[in-house]
């Protein structure tokens, strides 16, 4: 029989992560538990061998140069995307007074662009994922109106459990589910129907960072609602009305 503490608290103790009270408690337990004493010894020697084995692998020489070069060229590329660049050039050959005004204006824009550029990156990924899903054959990885088929499908594919519910009674029949990638991580995409339209609801665990997706808005004819609840972040997107998206998000967060 193994002492339960040897599989839990012992590790917090080993790592110096217990608060003083619990550490003291565990030390008292050690006085009478031979199993934990033995296990602590084993863990300490395992740690010692891991640390003396020089397993840490440093980046190859030259990687940092490659990264710097790619950042510089990525930067040049993203500058080209700003539509004001040609306008700026055009203005530059105009009257001096216009240039002064424009520079003052564009300087301000640039500062604003600092934040909205990142916002755009996150939002663009959501919109792209939605548009991609509407192409034939891309909507769902698991097509089912039954939440008991869709929910287990995500098992083992994600490190969290997305809230999957059929909401046909409320006018949002479940169509299916899909794995998608947003912001570099795999997320659950739940697909709902609304009259003849499809709604994608992306769900992922809260990252702890403030999200850069605005709470609501419209772009390219698509409407989105972004919100958080129960440790999850939700972004619903579709060409249906914002009111519909609100209703669906609220139902999912119940």
């Amino acid at each position: 029989m193994t002492c339960d503490l040897s599989r839990s608290l012992l590790h917090g103790y080993l790592d110096g992560e217990l608060d003083p009270l619990r550490a003291e408690e565990f030390e008292r337990h050690l006085e009478s538990c031979s199993q934990c004493i033995a296990q602590l010894g084993e863990q300490e020697s395992l740690r010692a061998s891991l640390q003396s084995a020089q397993l840490y692998e440093r980046a190859p020489a030259g990687l940092s140069t490659k990264i710097k070069r790619q950042i510089a060229s990525a930067e040049a590329e993203s500058d080209d995307q700003w539509s004001w660049v040609p306008i700026w050039r055009w203005i530059a050959v105009s009257a001096a007074i216009v240039v002064l005004v424009a520079v003052a204006y564009l300087g301000g824009q640039r500062i604003l662009a600092g934040r909205s550029g990142v916002e755009q990156a996150e939002l663009t990924e959501v919109i792209d994922a939605h548009v991609r899903s509407l192409q034939p054959g891309h909507l769902t990885d698991v097509a089912s109106t039954d939440q008991h088929n869709v929910k287990p499908w995500f098992d083992g594919k994600l490190d969290y459990v997305p809230p999957v519910r059929d909401l046909a009674e409320n006018g949002f029949p479940l169509v299916g589910g899909r794995l998608d990638v947003l912001n570099g991580r795999s997320v659950a995409a739940l697909v709902y129907g609304r009259r003849k339209h499809f709604i994608n609801v992306f769900v992922w665990p809260e990252s702890g960072k403030e999200s850069l997706i605005p709470a609501t808005g419209t772009r390219n004819g698509y409407q989105w609602i972004y919100s958080r609840a129960h440790g999850m972040e939700f972004c619903a997107i579709s060409d249906v009305s914002a009111a519909d998206l609100h209703d669906l998000t609220e139902l999912l967060q119940e």
Binding site: I67, I71, A74, S78, G114, R115, V118, A121, G184
Partner: peptide, 9 residues
């Protein structure tokens, strides 16, 4: 490179 793009965040 991705980190750099998100760095402002």
């Amino acid at each position: 490179v991705r980190a750099y793009r998100f760095f402002r965040g």
